[in-house]
């Protein structure tokens, strides 16, 4: 009976976040003890440089997963935002106004693509997988066409130096994540979102404005992806039309590891942050340990698979 009670609480709504947080701490402590070079300020900065954009993407994707959908277009939003913003900054002379204009255009890309995704899913009732996959192809094609596959270098120093200030980018990510957390947990919109994800039909009957909720969540995902594009563009000092092409699995994995359910209705900002933290620290440890590339991929894939299996088990029990 005691074990059964423990199991029930362990399988409660927040169990995966707590377990994941515990595993992340355990992994970090083990790595600090066993892996030379892990517990250093330099490596901490390395983890942040790599992890901060992923946090933004994972938080945005978690919102969409809670609504019962998925957003596969986030990396293409990053890429288009990156090249459009870079082009504007370079062509407009590189001063502060040019940087502001470029940043506005980058966020604008996120809003626009998010709105199209949201309308496709909410109004035209397209499956989110198809809608966002199609837009991913379209937006990626636009980014490549816009630059003819060329990277855009020579970005303004103001943008690069500001964008590489870890305290600033870290604070930005923290504020954005906290705002999303508040929106999810403390606002009526957050409750509507969970309800839509759990049962869209029931939400409609209950008077929840389902379509605006869904459109809003895709716009939020687009904005967060564009913000991730801002950070990566500053970090790489380049507008890149194929930016982030290979990180989608990491983002989906982090969101699922963090407890977001592929069936909808579950997920949290804290879980997404923990998911990114675990995957980034795990990847960092494996590279520091000189584990072969193929094993790195297998290990990360295995962890994400385990999370997906757990998600299925939780859904079966629900």
């Amino acid at each position: 009976m005691v074990l059964e009670g423990f199991n029930r609480s362990w399988l409660g709504s927040n169990w995966s976040q707590h377990v994941l947080f515990g595993l992340t701490v355990l992994l970090s402590v083990g790595a600090a003890w066993g892996i030379p070079g892990f517990a250093t300020t330099w490596n901490g900065q390395t983890l942040l440089i790599h992890g901060l954009p992923l946090v933004l993407l994972a938080v945005g994707l978690t919102l969409v997963l809670i609504s019962g959908g998925i957003d596969l277009s986030i990396t293409s939003v990053m890429a288009l935002a990156s090249v459009l913003g870079a082009k504007i900054m370079v062509d407009a002379g590189g001063g502060v106004p040019a940087v502001m204009l470029g940043l506005a255009a980058m966020i604008g890309v996120g809003v626009l693509v998010g709105a199209i995704n949201g309308i496709s899913v909410a109004v035209f009732r397209m499956p989110s997988f198809i809608a966002t996959l199609t837009l991913m192809m379209l937006v990626s094609g636009a980014a490549i066409l816009f630059t003819r596959s060329q990277k855009i270098a020579g970005l303004p120093d103001t943008f690069i130096t500001t964008g590489q200030q870890l305290w600033l980018t870290g604070s930005l990510v923290l504020v954005l994540a906290f705002l999303v957390h508040l929106g999810l947990k403390k606002s009526i919109y957050g409750r509507w979102l969970y309800l839509v994800g759990l049962n869209r039909r029931a939400a409609e009957i209950s008077g929840v404005p389902v379509k605006p909720v869904i459109v809003g969540v895709y716009i939020a995902s687009g904005i967060l992806a564009a913000c991730g594009g801002v950070l990566l563009t500053a970090s790489l000092e380049t507008g890149d039309p194929v930016m982030g092409q290979n990180i989608l699995l990491d983002v989906v994995g982090a969101a699922v590891l963090g407890g977001a359910s592929l069936q909808g209705g579950k997920g949290s900002v804290w879980g997404a942050v923990c998911g990114v933290g675990f995957l980034v620290i795990l990847g960092n440890c494996l590279v520091l340990m000189n584990v072969h590339y193929y094993y790195v991929t297998i290990v990360k894939g295995g962890v994400i698979l385990a999370a997906a299996v757990l998600d299925t088990q939780r859904s079966t029990r629900a």
Partner: peptide
Amino acid sequence: VVSIADGDASRQLQHIRVFVSR
């Protein structure tokens, strides 16, 4: 010591920083 960035420039930057820390 070997690392493969899997086509991602950000990951390659991370790996170079890991090499520096090593």
